[in-house]
Design a protein around this nucleic acid. Structure first.
Lengths: 153, 153
DNA sequence: GCGTATCGTTCACAGCTCGAATGATTCAGG
DNA sequence: CCTGAATCATTCGAGCTGTGAACGATACGC
């Protein structure tokens, strides 16, 4: 980009100019703030991710959820245990394949998910406070585009 | 936002529509890819962050670096140890306050930082492959704006 | 000078996630 | 119908990261 001289050695400015670096840093910041908010609900961000996956796709096996969220199946067990304890999900043996546990959202689970969305929107309001409405929607749109390209859609 | 009905319960779609959620998810993805690339240099992302902080600001004490990076001072010790082992930084007692260790980048450190920037740019090319050049610069600009508002500048 | 505060360092510990082992269940094929 | 291979959920042990509480050394206010 900076072709003023061409001999300039890349430094901190070059790193900070990249999307990857800012995405990583701001992502950590957003994740922390989101985590702090959902903690009041007794949840961690991964719980919210699992709830969202359950609401988005149809009832799924734990294996499928694991690969969709990009985590080990053993982690799904722990997350589902805790969500079950909160009454947010139901675990039912699939009658057509009794090895599978089918997870489904309860009304309580949907309520929790809604409050997670509220938490995220609150964080949004704070994060994007310095942006105009137009910039905000443009940013949201670009991030969504990236997500659709690189995340299991 | 969606005031079409008002009775609709927020679900996964609402969560996925937020900047915070996408920022967190994509940030983790970007961080993973960046980590994979700098691993070949014997570094972790935090090392790159430290190098960048050293190149950006003037020579700083470890305490100052800790608060700038948002980590515990004890972690700076470990990071600086490893960077010193690689010949990337020099540790010198501040003659005006012999409690302080002043870290400075060596030529090797600047070279490593430049290669970290290269790695980030490579990740960028992959991440933003589905975007037009105009979208790419708009995204980078928005992220930078967010960073300047919320990170220690 | 003497107590207090600050810096860097070490160390033990908690949290998170994974991978390998296990048991139950299903399925393919003779 | 029976047997061996494959798949699912679960448990458990291990690795990695980062933190917070000590501790010694040094600086500073009074």
């Amino acid at each position: 980009m900076s072709d003023v001289k061409g001999a300039e050695v890349k430094g901190a400015a070059a790193l900070r100019a990249t999307v990857a670096f800012n995405l990583g840093t701001l992502g950590a910041l957003a994740a922390d703030r989101f985590a702090a908010r959902v903690e009041a609900l007794g949840l961690k961000p991964k719980h919210a991710g699992l709830l969202a996956a359950l609401d988005a796709g149809s009832a799924a096996s734990q294996q499928e959820l694991a690969s969709r969220l990009g985590v080990a199946p053993s982690l799904i067990v722990a997350l589902a245990d805790q969500l079950q304890e909160l009454g947010a999900v139901e675990r039912l043996r699939d009658p057509e394949d009794r090895r599978r546990q089918v997870l489904t959202l309860t009304a309580e689970g949907r309520s929790l998910l809604a409050r997670c969305a509220d938490a995220a929107e609150t964080v949004d309001a704070d994060l994007t406070a310095g942006l105009t409405a137009a910039q905000r929607t443009a940013l949201a749109r670009h991030l969504r585009t990236l997500g659709e390209h690189h995340l299991p859609h």
